[in-house]
């Protein structure tokens, strides 16, 4: 199983290694928010508050849309080819989902590097924050692949669902604006969103608070999403037919 997962993982990673700049092109979205949105934030929030949210956002959009690659391979035929190979079915999704860690980490490090000259100061706890983020992006990646498998040959379903889910998750997690000041119903919805816990945890970790309840909740949310994603994805892949 580890052998098979490694094969799938390295196959997925190879185009990225062959063409590293492609990773940078996929991170324009958080960059736009950093450049065009963060200057509008009130004084008291600032980059220390905003950047950890942007890192989670890059994971949400990066890993969340990765199913599009699988969808394309389902259409061209290479997914079918891999289904016929002796690779264990769960490896086909686990290897793919694990690969999401690489672009997510590259994006995060780049976002941090870009914002440091503008006054962003990450605390050492950020390392733990990135680890947590890696776990979350595996889960989101696996869910995105599951959605691709479920959409079958209807590409529009995948993109419609992906967009419809991503934006509420983004807004309700308080990545752009604080949720605390909002109405009670919005705060309630925010509590249902696992990304909210991750965003809170990241903010505390990047600012040097490590052993807090929020960090624990964030970790729990990341592990929960990863477990759910891999479980759903593995089930789907086992049942996949061409």
């Amino acid at each position: 199983m580890i052998h098979d997962t490694t094969i799938v993982f390295s196959r997925e990673l190879r185009p990225v290694l062959r063409d590293p700049f492609s990773v940078i092109f996929t991170m324009v979205q958080p960059l736009f928010f950093l450049v065009l949105f963060s200057p509008l934030l009130p004084e008291e929030t600032g980059l220390q508050w905003f950047v950890p949210g942007m890192i989670v956002m890059s994971c949400l959009f990066g890993a969340g849309s990765t199913g599009g690659n699988l969808l394309f391979e389902m259409q061209t035929g290479s997914h079918e080819r891999m289904l016929v190979s002796p690779l264990r079915r769960p490896a086909l999704i686990v290897g793919r989902a694990l690969k999401e860690i690489v672009p997510t980490m590259v994006h995060s490090v780049l976002i941090i590097a870009i914002t440091i000259p503008f006054g962003f100061r990450p605390h050492a706890g950020a390392v733990l924050g990135l680890l947590m983020l890696a776990i979350m992006c595996v889960g989101l990646g696996a869910l995105s692949y599951s959605l691709a498998l479920a959409s079958k040959n209807k590409e529009w379903i995948f993109w419609a669902v992906q967009q419809t889910i991503s934006f509420p998750l983004l807004l309700l997690a308080g990545m752009l604006l604080p949720i605390e000041g909002g109405p009670a119903w919005l705060q309630f919805l925010s509590k249902l969103n696992p990304l909210s816990y991750l965003v809170n945890a990241e903010r505390e970790l990047f600012n040097g608070e490590v052993l807090t309840a929020n960090v624990g909740l964030g970790l729990l949310a990341a592990v929960g999403v990863a477990a759910l994603g891999l479980w759903v994805g593995t089930r789907q892949m086992r049942q996949a037919v061409a």
Binding site: P15, R18, E73, Q75, S78, E80
Partner: peptide
Amino acid sequence: YIGQGNGAGHSQRGRDE
């Protein structure tokens, strides 16, 4: 098995695949 579509991923290089 060589299916009706292309077994090699379009974003990959042939030798890698």
